[in-house]
Design a protein around this nucleic acid. Structure first.
Length: 591
DNA sequence: GCCGTTTTCGGCCCGACTGTTTTCAGTCG
């Protein structure tokens, strides 16, 4: 669960003006809690669902709700948000509190809603626990489970009580999200293990992994097989499995020793496409899709598209989309963020692919903090079919690496010339990653920069300036006509460091005005810009550089993670500067 | 509470699995 508004703090506030603005995730959390409490109250289940649906919309919104309101946007135009909830959300933003939730909390303490975070505990069981045992927090739940008091409740038993105890113990790791690249390392050998099971036809990973989200919470594996018994057996006996949480004839759930949860589903061949669609999600995309199907008199589920009881499609995802009258929608777009409408109108983007990339614009060598020399990096880039690779070692002033001074950079440029002379259809480009100082000036000799093909500039220090100062710092850097690309603009490290405070819209506008570009850094720990930022850039006509920031030859392969991210941001080949051939690229970068 | 190319009223996804039961309620995705 993400950053939650501390309840007590909200309640303590006397003045209805929030000291700190309330973020999308917190608004979603308030709506979700209210939904849970409503359900415990026995309210209309569809009303309950409406709150959860709206919460999901807000949580996945690429834009900040406060900003939308400030710009006069009508929230009721958002999916699953109607007039009533638009008003409630606006009130939450204005006051920092949700009055309806405060009211219901008098009957049901809000902490009770947290209990539903435990797998196996839904509103019904939590209500029973609260009403009978007066338990209203996870701590109290743990005590009761240890004391064996839960099993006395109707339809509670020893096993459920034990699983609650275990869930409480594993809570921390279960909430962890896994970087996509990390998940890939776990998934690849598992897929090989499953593929050899008897009766298996196809194996695929679905879920957010297939949608290429930057982090995934669990892994969903789909198998089509003539008989699921063997593959499920093999799955639950896999060496990394720590616990089997569910096991049936067509699905199983396990937890790996690493804490990663993996779900496996087995379907017959003719349902492979519909099941892949179903389990790839997002949930929100699926709900909207099924609603469109219903309007055409179709029922869509994981086994296919049905007219009455007659199966009419399901072998491929494209077949199912076609029955709803839609073209195929790429998994990266399936977030119910306008892709269904675009599909209906025939205006889906033609997403950039790895094949469109002609070169990499950010790489290091052992001259600074990379691990290999120019020639090895050039060979690796050429082996990947690239026309160019920009060498952008750090210049001096970055304390953590031994950056290049003017003399060493000059030497590197001469060596690049020598190497280029020996290569056909490939060129090493001369660049540098220059540090942007706190006042926005560059930590490099201007004469030195003039000799480069282009300059990458980035922030590495003073990450804690406020939003205004940070934005102006970057704009000031771009005022320097030598600067072409801002690398890893927000400086975030997934799961480790928050992005710097930044007015991204203002930054992007300034970049467009100056003929600068922002980077989508493909390092799996960065993926910076984010998908939402990519989409913002596209809307503003800002072209992006998708670069690996590789410090070794092997990690030039990280390009695909950058491409994944760009695709999630609706980016097309023309939106990416390094889809250009060498001469066009240099022309485009020229300011 | 949301939504509208069958509808401004009357719908709203539904199948699999578990645990606790002797036939199913609750939860999950």
């Amino acid at each position: 669960m993400r950053g939650r508004m501390p309840e007590r703090e909200a309640a303590r506030r006397a003045v209805p003006v929030p000291a700190v603005k309330i973020h999308n995730a917190e608004i979603a959390n308030l709506l979700n809690r209210y939904g849970v409490l409503l359900e415990m109250e026995g309210d209309n289940p569809f009303r309950v669902r409406a709150y959860h649906n709206a919460a999901r919309t807000i949580e996945n919104l690429p834009r900040d709700v406060n900003q939308m309101l400030a710009e006069g946007a009508d929230l009721s135009e958002l999916p699953a948000v109607g007039k009533d909830l638009a008003g409630k959300i606006a009130a939450i933003c204005a006051s920092g509190r949700f009055d309806a939730l405060e009211k219901i909390k008098k009957k049901l303490p809000a902490g009770v809603a947290d209990l539903t975070e435990i797998p196996g505990l839904g509103p019904k069981r939590v209500k029973a626990i609260f009403k009978t045992l007066k338990i209203k927090s996870l701590e109290e739940l743990g005590e009761a489970a240890r004391a064996g008091r839960l099993r006395a409740l109707p339809r509670f038993g020893e096993k459920l009580e034990k699983s609650i105890q275990e869930a409480l113990q594993h809570r921390a790791e279960r909430e962890q999200r896994w970087r996509l690249a990390t998940a890939e390392q776990v998934v690849a050998p598992l897929l090989r293990h499953l593929e050899t099971a008897r009766g298996v036809e196809r194996v695929a990973v679905a879920g957010s992994y297939r949608r290429r989200k930057e982090t995934v919470g669990d892994i969903d594996i789909l198998v089509s097989a003539t008989d699921g018994t063997d593959v499920i057996e093999r799955f639950t006996r896999y060496s990394e499995v720590d616990a089997v949480t569910a096991k049936g004839e067509t699905r199983a759930t396990v937890r790996f020793t690493s804490g990663l949860q993996v779900d496996l589903r087995v379907v017959p061949s003719r349902s492979y496409g519909s099941a892949l669609l179903y389990f790839t999600g997002s949930k929100s995309h699926n709900i909207a899709l099924r609603a469109m199907g219903m309007k055409k008199g179709l029922k869509i589920n994981e086994y296919g598209a049905f007219k009455g009881s007659r199966w009419i499609a399901g072998e491929t995802e494209a077949d199912v989309y076609a029955k709803i009258g839609l073209p195929y929608i790429e998994p990266e777009l399936r977030e119910n963020q306008g892709e269904l409408e675009a599909a209906r109108k025939g205006s889906l983007p033609h997403l950039v692919t790895l094949k469109d990339i002609k070169g990499d614009l950010h790489a290091h060598t052992d001259a600074s903090d990379g691990q290999q020399g120019l020639e090895t990096m050039a060979d690796a880039a050429q082996a990947r079919g690239y026309a160019y690779l920009a060498i952008s070692d750090h210049t001096e002033h970055v304390g953590i690496v031994h950056g290049l001074d003017a003399k060493r950079l000059k030497k590197q440029m001469a060596e690049i010339d020598r190497l280029n002379a020996r290569r056909r259809d490939f060129r090493l480009l001369k660049s540098a990653e220059v540090d942007i100082l706190a006042d926005g000036t560059l930590a490099a000799d201007p004469g030195m920069l003039a000799e480069l093909d282009f300059v990458v500039a980035a922030i590495h220090t003073k990450l804690d300036l406020d939003g205004k100062a940070q934005t102006e710092r970057l704009i000031r850097a771009m005022d320097n006509p030598r600067v072409n690309i801002i690398a890893h603009p927000t400086g975030r490290l997934l799961g480790a460091r928050e992005p710097i405070a930044l007015d991204m819209k203002r930054l992007m506008k300034a970049a467009v005005e100056r003929g600068c570009h922002l980077e989508v850094n493909a390092q799996p720990t960065r993926l910076d810009l984010s998908d939402a930022h990519c989409r913002m850039a596209k809307a503003m006509g800002l072209k992006l550089a998708v670069s690996t920031d590789a410090h070794t030859a092997d990690t030039l392969d990280y390009m695909r993670f950058g491409i994944d991210q760009a695709r999630r941001g609706w980016i097309e080949p023309d939106d990416v500067v390094n889809t250009r051939e060498t001469m066009q690229l240099l022309k485009l970068l020229k300011r």
